[in-house]
Amino acid sequence: MSAGIALVANGFRGFARYLGAVMGADAYAKYLEHHRAAGHQEVPLSEREFWRDRTDRQDSNPQGRCC
């Protein structure tokens, strides 16, 4: 019984993680990963700075949304 619940919970968590990734919730984590992998010397942007920069760049670089 508890194994079944764990299975459902796992499945739900997986779906939530997927949905989050589709919406771009993991963008900051990916940025940090890139920053680390690329071996940049300067300090990475803080989470707040990153999201600010992200939406501000969209201001001058709009993405289409389809019909």
Partner: peptide, 11 residues
């Protein structure tokens, strides 16, 4: 909320 309260908490 996303800009000032809890940045990045998209979900």
């Amino acid at each position: 909320y996303l800009r000032y309260l809890r940045p990045g908490k998209v979900m």
